[in-house]
Each structure stands twice: as C-alpha cells, then as structure tokens.
Design a protein around this nucleic acid. Structure first.
Length: 445
RNA sequence: GUGGCUAUAGCUCAGUUGGUUAGAGCGCCAGAUUGUGAUUCUGGAUGUCGCCGGUUCGAGUCCGGUUAGCCACCCCA
C-alpha cells in the first residue's frame, strides 16, 4: 500500500494533448487532407523508424540532424524520421516504377528531433507535407501556391500573405556579382534581414561569407525592392540581364503571378519578396513562406519550395519536384494565441440526460436515433440530479441537452434544451431530429 | 549546444532580514423548495512549497546538484 508512486511526467519536448486542443488538431489535419485531396494529391505513409543511413544521407552528418538513434533488437542501426521529406525521397526511389510521374502525394505524420525545445519547437510534432515530383513544370509551382492559399482559407484564415521568391533570381544575382560559391553563407545571412537589420546582415556577410561590403550592399539593395510583383520584376529584369538563371527565375515568377491572377487568387494575399531565402540548402527554384496577418511574429506557418533532385541519394533517376509543408503545431500555437480555438471538449453536440433510471432503454434508443441521423450524441451514464448532468453538459461544451421524465414519456415528447440560448421547449418525439437540426443549424431542419 | 530567468493549491500568483497551524483570486466539491446548467448566496477541501542533498536550534525563504519550463543566441528539416 505504501509502494512509491511513479511520477507521471512526459519526456522533455514531448507533450500530451487534452481533448480541446486535440479536437482542434484533428480538425486541422482533416482540413489539410481535404484540401490536398481536392488537388489530386494521394495519401501515403512511411515507417517512423528507418535505417539510420537512409536518414543520415551520405555525409553521415548526425550532429545537426539531432536524430533519435539507437540499435534495435536485431542489432540494426536505426533512427526515427526527423522529417517527411527524406523518407519520401527513399520511398520515391524505391517505388518509382510503380508510381509513374508526375506523382503527387500528401503525408501527414509525426516526426522526431532531438533538438532543444523552444517556443513552437518540440521533439515530437506533426507535419502535413504535400509534393509534386517528376515534373519541372511551372504549373506545379503555381498550383503549390494555390494549395497553400486554399489551405489557409479552408482553415478559416482571411488575413495572410504567401511570400514567394525564386532561388534562381538570387543565384543569378550572386552569379553576376561573382560570388556564387559563397551563396549558402550569403543566403543564410540574408534570411535574417527582418530579424537583425541591414547593418548586421552586411557585417555577417562580410565576416562569414567573406565578400566585400560593396557586394553585400548590392545584395541588400536587390533584396530591399518593394512594390507589386510586376513592379519588382520590372526592376529586377535589367539587374539580371545576361544571367541565364536569373532570367529564367524572373520568367517563372512572372508566369506564376499572372496565372494566379487569372485563376482568381486575391492579389493581396500574394507577395514577391526577394529577401526570403529559407535556410534549406536543397531548394533551387520557387520558395514559399506564409505569414499570418494577425500574428506575423510566430513565423511561417506554411512553407515550401522547388528542388532539382529529391532522391539523388537513392537513385540515379533525376526527380525534380515542388512542395510544401503545413506547420500544424505552430499554427495551433498561433490559433491558441489568437483565441481562435473553441472551448469545447466533446465531439458530440447532444447530451441525453438520464432522469428516470427505469427508462434507460429509451434514453439509449433516442441517442441511437440521433446517430443514425448523423448527429453525434452521448448518453450520461448515471441517473444523477438533472442539475449535475446539465452542469456536465455545460462544462464539456454540449450545445443541446435532452430531458424526459414520466410526464414526457406519457405524452411521447422530449424536453429539448438549447444550452447556449438558455431556451427549452417540449417537442413530440417524431419532430425531435428536426428540432435538433434546427438548433444546430444543420440542413434538413 | 551557450547564456539568463523561473519552479508554492487544478490555474494565475502572494509569502517581510530564515521563526509557530503556508495565503488570495479563479476553478473544484457540497448545500440554498427533491424536474434544470452557465448568473447569485452560504459553506468546504485544496499542498511532501519540482526533486535530492547541505548550512542552521529552525529552510517555502540561504547554498550545491538535478529535473522541467520560459526568454535570448546558435542551428534549422
């Protein structure tokens, strides 16, 4: 009896999800699924655990990937996936003959990283990826923009900006400046422009990338261009003249924005921002970042880009592609901060109270009838005081409570109580489903 | 990984130069005509003061360690 209790606790960086947040999470995932499917992306899944060499790549550079890595019972060197992209590269190389190209897939899954946890950064979190591989067509880049846009509106956001750039444009400029081989360090510094300011970025470029202050200044002048996409592209054009890459980048951006306009994507939600570079080395073309109008500080909630060769580590076949990833947990954190999460912790809108213990079958029967009509319903399991049962309904966020005692059973009616409106009326059982639908504003009322 | 801050009731926090039975608000539980929540009134319980050790007659308070969280930096699929 006096055994020492085990302290209930989760590992650092790992979290529990209570019903309220979890229902919001599931809804986000469901929305993402729906939007991805509407564009023809197919679902796939891959194992959480892979051979370590698959995830590590050729370099075997474990240090900055922070893998959870161990030896399994069969003495294999294994690791948990730290993103969905590398497993997808392995997957694509392994199954390309069965899939054919172009191939569009979405993948919603948990990933693990042994990084130090911080705000919006955990050791276990969910990513919602979508990619189109096997085509270099700019149509795929444009549609990637549409996916991000439709995803955000489907999630209930009106005020957001998808910032778009193209690495070819940046690389074209670096090429003209003759500093191509230092691009990684330069872009990394450029990415911090908003955060640390122009002077600090120049300093970092000079120090880290070893270019002249003049060259750094030119990169920043370039990145500081403001205006509509058309205006910026017009100014960029002469600066990149003669650079094959740069001109191609401009052409692709031009086409992307023109198509978006034709297809009816609101112009105010798209921006050409030459300063975004993203930290990822493998992006080679279009780059996307999505910021919330009401909470830009939390960072990009939906990002992505084009890459030349997804699966170079696993196959000699070249697999170009473009895709993106919804940062589910970061978005959830943003919604929490913006108070967009409802305080509901039940997936059922209707609670059937038990008033007369001898009529349990009738309460269970009516709940079943509701479910058959597509309305989620829960039966309170005990014949406690009605006040207690209503208190439970109120606390969990039920919208409707059904009550019936001897009077109602004699008359063949139910008391239907609209908790939020604080209104109650008696309806014949035959009209109950309709009355419930009415309160819930469902069709068929 | 580096630096800083924090840890007291379910939650947000107070707690004097170290001193008796550790407090508030919210929430929770019970009751206020036994068929009605959220509002009102009354009453009640909150707890190994994160954990381990040290100093002291005496530690929520001081010191060391440890675990967890927050902030900044680093890094970034």
């Amino acid at each position: 009896m006096t055994d020492k209790l085990i302290k209930p606790q989760t590992l650092k960086g790992f979290r529990d999800y209570l019903p309220g947040p979890m229902m919001a999470r599931e809804q986000l995932m469901e929305t993402a699924r729906r939007v991805y499917r509407s564009f023809g992306f197919s679902p796939i899944d891959t194992p959480a655990l892979e051979y370590a060499e698959v995830l590590l790549g050729k370099a075997g550079d474990e240090s900055n990937k922070q893998l959870f890595r161990f030896t399994d019972q069969g003495d294999r060197d294994v690791a948990m996936r730290f993103d969905l992209t590398v497993p997808f590269a392995r997957f694509a190389a392994e199954h390309m003959n069965e899939l054919g190209t172009p191939f569009k897939r979405y993948h919603i899954g948990t990933v693990w990283r042994g990084e130090k946890p911080a705000k919006g950064r955990f050791r276990e979190f969910v990513q919602c990826d979508f990619d189109t591989i096997g085509t270099e067509s700019n149509v795929a880049d444009t549609e990637t923009t549409f996916v991000m846009h439709d995803l955000m509106t489907a999630l209930g956001f009106e005020r957001f900006t998808i910032r778009i750039n193209n690495r070819l444009v940046l690389n074209g400029l670096l090429e003209k400046l003759g500093v191509t081989e230092k691009s990684t360090a330069i872009l990394r510094a450029l990415d911090k422009l908003l955060k640390i300011g122009r002077d600090a970025v120049v300093a970092e470029m000079v120090e880290q990338a070893q270019i002249t202050a003049e060259q750094a200044g030119q990169v920043l002048d370039f990145a500081a261009l403001k205006g509509s996409p058309d205006e910026i592209l017009l100014k960029l054009s002469p600066m990149l003249q003669g650079s094959e890459r740069g001109e191609k980048g401009i052409a692709r951006l031009n086409e992307l924005f023109a198509s978006a306009r034709t297809a009816g994507i609101p112009a105010e939600r798209l921006a050409l921002d030459v300063s975004i570079a993203r930290g990822l080395d493998y992006y080679t073309g279009t780059i996307y970042e999505t910021f919330l109008g009401d909470l830009p500080g939390i960072g990009s909630v939906c990002s992505g880009g084009r890459y030349d060769n997804l699966a170079g580590l696993f196959t000699r076949q070249s697999l170009p592609g473009v895709g993106g990833s919804l940062g589910l947990d970061r978005l959830l954190a943003a919604m929490e901060e913006l108070k967009l999460l409802p305080a509901v912790s039940t997936p059922a809108p209707v609670l059937v109270t038990i008033f007369d213990a001898s009529r349990v079958g009738d309460y269970l029967r009516i709940a079943r009838a509701l479910r058959e009509a597509g309305i989620n319903a829960e039966v309170y399991p005990e014949a406690k005081a009605v006040g207690k049962q209503l208190q439970y309904a109120n606390r969990k966020g039920f919208q409707i409570a059904l009550i019936a005692g001897s009077d109602e059973f004699a008359a063949g009616t139910w008391q239907i109580k609209d908790l939020a409106a604080s209104q109650q009326r008696s309806v014949p059982e035959a009209d109950l489903i309709t009355a419930v639908r009415e309160i819930l504003s469902l069709p068929g009322a």
